[in-house]
Nucleic acid binder design. Structure first.
Length: 836
RNA sequence: GCCCGAGUGGCGGAAUUGGCAGACGCACCGCACUCAAAAUGCGGCGCCGAAAGGCGUGUGGGUUCGAGUCCCACCUCGGGCACCA
């Protein structure tokens, strides 16, 4: 058939209709809505799978980042559905948070007004974007029906001693006028607004996440291979496990009278003989407790000086070491040596015990301090390097112990073990594991969050609000200026709300006026989706058992520590409470990359923002989704300046035209159709499934393009549009495209004569017989260089292939009469000949 | 300083995990259709070379019949942590 003829056929089949994404979108969106295509059956007849995108914060309309992340999650949901799983793919909003409050202050409104208006905007955009979500399970964390159960969970934590209050110096953001969790302080500044963070002593609520440090670390084994390695590395780093020893030092007055003992943490008990002084954190209470009276004024002056430093200044390693002598001596339990006790700010009050033994020869910070204050340096591990006292560089490597009594001659590892044995048998120390992780500070002095369900009673103290009185709802009459930050929670101003009865004694009492960090809300929402309307508890235990853990979680790497660590912690606590039967909430995690423009993150200040709505208007939903998927592997960034949504639109139109060309009726059996095209179709489906299972979505698109090209060729220059293999191929293209370009796929499906929805068409069965090639190309190499290619049968015998290869003229030319040393034959793909 | 990750054409990226490097696409070039353009279709496109051929996956070494892939050393870029004892 000439290409001239086929062009005519194509035009007549199209009847003048051309690909018009706007009308296709308008056609199918209401049909899907009516068919309710994406709710799980949930009857146990099919294997259940749960795929979840990190739920959005409603800050205006959706942006390019949402478009990418949700395209990824939707590919998984739609693929699993085609494979026959019962898929839970819900959507909700993380709808408490500061921006709503700021908007309310600015516009003299209630935060709920701004929040719920934005949610409606985003919901409409998600629907346009054709996210295959089960809308009946939609939730918002700011709904009282939701936060009732956040409060309920807080109470369970409280009962187990995992939620507690303490007075402690906390990170304080002077701009947002609220405290921040450790995880929300980035380089000494507020994660949200960039203001340098200061310290403030406050009585605040904490979750005891440190009790779970070891399990958070150990259970990462379950996640290895299913979570990105960098996320696991970041969590490992954040938890910061270090193994060492606690060693007790007696503190003496100058006259030798023993006063008390102080424990230090060290990872290097082998260097105990190298300790030449002792340092306590300047801001630890301990400093004030042990200081000699004649040095107290000096200490207090120093403490004032330290307090004046910002976190950024304090954390700088460039800074000169500062400190004051406290007029006391610490007794080394190993050799009885008296070490002068100093207070310094390079020792941190809330890591370890807030006190250290200083070994200047083998710790750089101690050496810097020793040199600043002219304290002795004693080498105890000979590493063969220059003496630290001379070089100014502490040595930390392996070596031989010297100047260390019973440890002399041992290597570092043996000496550590031996030193621990010695202090353990003397009762002055023990092996210890220490963590960098701190407890999770969850109080916020803000309005738009989950109220903490505690009443403070002058007689009974902290009294939890009884379960049946939950939720403690936010007062509705606070709005506008009343919400402006003033260092204490705006809730304190709602007198009627604050003043209440003590649930225990009935006397006058006051509500806790702080709200919870919004990360508390998001630490369990994935469980609520299993039974979003459940009223007897946070979630129905059976439904949770059916659906969880989440099989595939999708979201940005910015939550590598915060949200993901907190959710893991919550899940372990819920496991201990007997509420769930698993210890990890997200079996697999995909971190999609960012959408950049011109190599940089989109931002207002750079003026390189790309508006999602405009892109959708210009190229259509499908072209934008396809561009996001095709541009790069899911976890890589997409630079919008490098991609071509118009190219995607062109491809979709090309695929769509195929459906109009097919001239065999729906239901035509494919058997007997063109064998080459049938093989291409079945191979594509087979490879696509493997690629989808391993998350290589971009390659699946490439394979689909190849099939489209092969089908075009079969119609124009092959068996023609009526061949049943063409129908089979185009139906496969529709199903493949239903994962990436749902509108186009649905329209193709309809043009092929099928009922909606292609989303439920099911993955076509792959015929293994069609995966076998009729002929394969065997590569003939001489010394690893390709010299010839032979078309051979896939079942060719090694000997036969060897003979064919040696007979090749190209091979003979290169061999040039030389004999053979080795001939490697890997039938049917390759022969490698090594001449003598 | 410590811990992760990555380096492949002009660009985004493929490569069944040791077997044809550069699939697919973007950009570019050419051809057909057209009065013309757009659209569409067909073809070309790593580098050097007229060709034969040679070179080529950050650099240098190694293992192997054979290395983008494995091992050793290094360089560069990106990310995380960091006065954490």
């Amino acid at each position: 058939m000439s290409s001239e003829n086929s062009t005519t056929i194509r035009n007549s089949a199209d009847e003048g209709r051309s690909y018009d994404f706007a009308s296709i979108e308008a056609t199918w969106a209401p049909v899907w809505e009516q068919l309710n295509v994406f709710a799980p059956v949930d009857d146990g007849t099919r294997e259940r799978r749960y795929v979840l995108d990190m739920f959005p914060y409603p800050s205006g309309d959706l942006h390019m980042g949402h478009a990418e992340a949700f395209a990824m999650g939707d590919v998984v949901a739609r693929y699993w559905r085609q494979r026959g799983y019962d898929v839970l793919h819900p959507i909700g909003w993380d709808s408490f948070g500061l921006p709503a409050e700021n908007a309310a202050i600015k516009h003299d409104a209630h935060p709920a007004e701004w929040t719920y208006a934005n949610i409606e905007t985003q919901a409409a955009s998600f629907k346009r974007y054709a996210i295959s979500a089960d809308w009946s399970r939609r939730l918002h964390t700011s709904d009282p029906e939701y936060y009732r159960w956040t409060q309920w969970l807080f109470k369970r934590f409280h009962e187990k001693g995992l939620a507690y209050r303490k007075n402690h110096p906390v990170n304080w953001c002077p701009k947002d006028q609220t405290v921040l969790a450790n995880e929300q302080v980035v380089n000494g500044a507020c994660e949200r607004c960039g203001t340098p963070v200061t310290k403030k002593a406050l009585n605040q609520w904490y979750f005891k996440i440190t009790d779970y440090a070891d399990r958070l670390l150990e259970d990462m084994e379950q996640l290895a291979g299913h979570w990105p390695e960098r996320v696991l590395a970041m969590q490992r780093n954040w938890i910061g496990r270090s193994e060492g020893a606690h060693v007790e030092f007696a503190i003496e007055a100058a006259d030798g009278a023993a006063e008390r003992t102080v424990t230090v943490f060290t990872t290097r008990p082998d260097t105990l003989y190298g300790a030449t002084f002792f340092v306590v954190a300047a801001d630890a209470e301990l400093a004030g407790e042990i200081v000699a009276p004649e040095h107290r004024a000096e200490l207090e002056a120093y403490q004032e000086q330290v307090k004046a430093l910002s976190e950024i200044e304090r954390q700088s390693t460039e800074r000169e070491k500062t400190g004051v002598f406290l007029g006391r001596y610490a007794v080394n339990p190993l050799n009885g040596e008296k070490l002068p006790v100093w207070a310094a700010d390079y020792v941190l009050a809330d890591y370890g015990t807030g006190a250290i033994m200083a070994v200047p020869a083998h710790d750089q910070r101690d050496l810097d301090f020793a040199r600043a204050f002219d304290l002795p340096v004693r080498l105890v591990v000979d590493t063969g390097e220059e003496d630290p006292a001379v070089s100014g560089t502490a040595t930390g490597g392996d070596g031989t112990l010297v100047n260390s009594g019973p440890l002399d001659g041992l290597g570092k590892a043996e000496a550590i073990a031996r030193a621990i044995e010695i202090v353990e048998s003397a009762g002055t120390g023990r092996h210890t594991v220490n963590y960098r992780l701190r407890d999770w500070l969850l109080s916020r002095q803000r309005f738009w969050g989950t109220p903490i369900p505690i009443v403070h009673c002058p007689d009974c103290g902290e009294v939890p609000v009884p379960d049946e009185q939950l939720p403690v709802t936010l007062p509705s009459d606070l709005r506008g200026e009343a919400l402006a930050p003033k260092g204490t929670s705006p809730l304190a101003a709602a007198t009627e709300w604050v003043n209440t009865e003590c649930p225990r004694c009935g006397g006058a009492a006051q509500r806790d006026t702080d709200t919870m960090d919004t990360f508390v809300d998001s630490s369990w929402y994935f469980l609520r989706f299993a039974s979003p309307d459940y009223t007897e508890g946070p979630f129905d235990l059976e439904a949770a058992k059916d659906w969880l853990p989440v099989g595939q979680y999708v979201g940005g790497v910015e939550h590598a520590i915060l949200h993901l660590l907190y959710s893991r912690f919550f899940t372990k606590v819920l496991f201990d409470l007997g509420l769930v039967g698993f210890t990890e909430p997200f079996s697999a995690l995909l971190n999609q990359g960012q959408v950049l423009n011109g190599g940089k993150a989109m931002s207002k200040s750079l003026g390189n923002g790309v508006d999602l709505g405009e892109q959708l208007d210009l190229f259509g939903v499908d072209a934008i989704r396809l561009t996001m998927i095709f541009a790069s592997p899911p976890e890589d960034d997409v630079d919008w300046a490098d991609v071509s949504p118009s190219g995607s639109a062109k491809f979709l139109a090309r695929a769509w035209r195929l459906a109009g060309d097919v001239s065999s009726p729906a239901g035509t059996p494919a058997a007997g159709g063109d064998a080459a095209l049938r093989r291409a179709t079945h191979r594509t489906l087979h490879e696509a499934a493997e690629l989808l299972d391993s998350g290589k979505f971009n390659v699946v698109v490439a394979k689909t393009m190849e099939l489209v090209n092969a089908t075009r060729k079969a119609i124009d220059a092959g068996p023609g549009a009526a061949d049943p293999a063409v129908r089979e191929a185009v139906e496969a293209v529709s199903i493949l495209l239903s994962l990436f370009a749902p509108y186009t796929a649905e329209d193709m499906w309809a043009r092929l004569g099928h009922e909606p929805s292609v989303a439920n068409a099911g993955w076509p069965e792959v015929d293994p017989a069609l995966l076998v090639q009729e002929t394969v190309v065997a590569v003939v190499q001489v010394q690893g260089k390709v010299r010839d290619r032979l078309e051979v049968s896939p079942g060719i015998a090694e000997d036969e292939l060897r003979e064919l290869a040696l007979a090749s003229p190209a091979v003979q030319r290169v061999l040039d009469g030389r004999g053979l040393r080795t001939v490697i034959v890997r039938a049917p793909k390759l022969v490698n000949i090594v001449p003598a």
